[in-house]
């Protein structure tokens, strides 16, 4: 798990202002052209296509080819993948890879486990981090500064330092080899608390005051007035938790040995060890593990980019 914020203020981004805005560009040509149009008596000239396409098309293809290879290999006949040279595009669609994957592995169990881990993690993050973020941002109570300070301090600590004692702790709690071991680390995070705290700090205090004047208590103000405004920050938090918990590998690898409690990533890694050369099966597994996130990404690209900017969550 990793946490960053870019150099910009968190409030800015969590406020869901569209940061990556194609309308504001540094392209001097476009600016010049715009100026010309403005001064040129409204004469609209069709601009010739930008030369940047010549750079962007190959680069985009380069980034897409690994995914294309993955999808195509997953629907290729196994024989073609190890022929020499293997065709990039299969001669015909063959779902043997998927059939083999579902028959020879517990991929559906793994998928279900990962869905459980991510769902519980997201739900818990949304509830606990918005509560704590609000408390640290708006409520005045003794020990608040100390709490903020200590949680901040934990942000610098790398996961690798925590793995060994956490493993020992979890084994004493009887969590090791259960799905619980994969879930507990994703229940809350310092990043989540801070993201929400920064967001709540950015809201004007008058909102709450007017609510209090109307006779609502703190809890009602929080649930009825504040939370509905926090949707952009909550979306960022949900995606952060989704990406982190869905793709986590090292921690399930350490804490879970029982194939029934495998997460998708762990199961896939394990499956790879036993099926080194059955490429269509492995690629089918890859598709099952990656496609849900790709689909999410395509539907909520803006929110994903937002999350990416705030949390350098990868690996």
């Amino acid at each position: 798990m990793a946490i960053t914020t870019s150099t910009r203020s968190v409030l800015d981004v969590a406020g869901a202002s569209p940061r990556i805005d194609s309308a504001r560009t540094l392209d001097a040509d476009a600016a010049a052209a715009g100026g010309r149009v403005a001064s040129g008596a409204g004469r609209r000239k069709r601009r010739r296509p930008s030369a940047w396409h010549l750079f962007l098309i190959p680069v985009s293809l380069l980034f897409l080819i690994p995914f294309l290879q993955m999808f195509l290999a997953s629907v290729s006949p196994e024989k073609e993948l190890v022929s020499f040279p293997p065709p990039f595009i299969p001669s015909h669609l063959d779902f043997g890879g998927y059939a083999g994957l579902f028959a020879e592995s517990n991929v559906l169990t793994w998928l279900l486990n990962t869905v459980i881990v991510s769902t519980v993690g997201i739900a818990s993050h949304l509830v606990l981090c918005s509560l704590a973020g609000y408390g640290f941002a708006r409520l005045k109570f003794r020990g608040r500064q100390l709490g903020i300070f200590m949680i901040l301090g934990t942000i610098m600590i790398p996961t690798q330092l925590l793995m060994i004692p956490t493993y020992i702790l979890f084994s004493q709690l009887g969590l090791v080899n259960t799905l619980g071991a994969a879930i507990v680390p994703w229940l809350s995070s310092a990043f989540g608390i801070f993201l929400m705290r920064q967001f709540f700090l950015s809201l004007p205090a008058e909102l709450e005051e007017s609510g209090m004047l109307d006779g609502a208590n703190r809890w009602q103000v929080f649930t009825r007035i504040i939370l509905p405004l926090a949707k952009p920050a909550l979306a960022t938090l949900a995606i952060f938790t989704l990406l982190g918990s869905w793709n986590d590998l090292i921690w399930p690898l350490i804490a879970i040995n029982d194939p029934h409690a495998f997460t998708l990533q762990l199961g896939l890694q394990n499956f790879q060890g036993t099926r080194r050369t059955q490429w269509s099966l492995l690629m089918a597994g890859n598709v099952v593990a990656t496609l849900p996130l790709i689909v999410f990404f395509l539907f909520a690209q803006k929110q994903f980019v937002q999350t990416m900017t705030l949390s350098g969550l990868k690996g």
Partner: peptide, 23 residues
Amino acid sequence: RRIRFIGVYRTAIFVPFVASAAA
């Protein structure tokens, strides 16, 4: 920059971010 298909290019370059280390 504001050119045609810029959204497609961005998507293509950003989408591998969701791929897990295992995949």
